[in-house]
Write a protein that binds this DNA or RNA. Structure first.
Ligand SMILES: [Mn+2]
Ligand SMILES: [Mn+2]
Ligand SMILES: [Zn+2]
Ligand SMILES: [Zn+2]
Lengths: 138, 138
DNA sequence: TAAATGATTGCAACTTTGTTGCAAAATAAA
DNA sequence: TTTATTTTGCAACAAAGTTGCAATCATTTA
């Protein structure tokens, strides 16, 4: 719903603009994570590249999306669950990157295991990224 | 030892050149992971930027170093343990990135846990990156 | 509803990062 | 030492990301 998307923006004290609505919709309609380049491809005639950078940055700061680490100089973004907010992310799930089709999934139901760290180290966040073949490619 | 470094290169069927020796030495003497930029800073007057890109790429292909995923559009490289070779990596350890000083550690003694994936998904590799404060910064 | 305020956008110009082809130089093999 | 092969540096380029600023848009206020 258009309205629902505006709601998310308002809830985060963001003014409701075309670009923000459209980009948020893209995430809603995608079942996988998106890179800046993906968003640019799907909106390039509507919005400036710089606007996309700034929108993604804002969404991350507000906790609307979260980032997924990769080993290829790219950053992937995916929608956070409702209870995420600035500084308090609760996306404690595993991510899966398919080597074949490149799709990146949030495995919402698979939680991050506790990981030991050495004496003196303090854990703030743990990211788990599994790669291999997704169900469509195996 | 200079000789030891040349040995590693030869064992991997690589010709022994200044840049490869120097870059490999950098990794040996560093107790943390290095980004392309780090290496460039420490060798920029000796080697061309392109040579560093190509050397890192070769080292990854040969299994001399492994990459560490990050959420900031950068890739980190660290030395692999001896038994790694092309296509057969055994760096099943957790990585730790300090939010304060930026240092990235290979926690060689902390092994990656088994992670469940949904029906139809096939796991090839699992990366675990913990972030927070390292022992020097906590 | 209209004006004022404040935030967001697009553009231009720029920096930084990564890639490619090719001749010269260096290494390894003969 | 000579030859064959690989690697390097350079130049030119492409892609990705950043910044300042004026114009536009969204929200607040009257
Ligand atoms: Mn996710
Ligand atoms: Mn490591
Ligand atoms: Zn796939
Ligand atoms: Zn630290």
């Amino acid at each position: 719903m258009k309205n629902e998307i505006a709601e998310i923006l308002k809830r985060n004290q963001l003014s409701v603009t075309d670009s923000r609505q459209k980009i948020l919709e893209l995430f809603r309609h995608s079942n996988s994570a998106l890179a800046h380049a993906d968003i640019e491809k799907q909106t390039s005639e509507q919005f400036d590249r710089v606007t996309i950078y700034r929108t993604l940055q804002t969404f991350v700061e507000k906790g609307i999306v979260h980032t997924i680490p990769t080993t290829d100089n790219s950053v992937l973004y995916a929608l956070c669950k409702d209870n995420c907010s600035e500084g308090h992310h609760h996306d404690d799930h595993v991510h899966f990157i398919c080597d074949d089709c490149g799709t990146t999934y949030c495995l919402e139901h698979i939680t991050i295991p506790k990981v030991e760290v050495p004496q003196g180290f303090i854990t703030k966040q743990t990211d788990v990224v599994v790669s291999g073949q997704c169900d469509k490619c195996s």
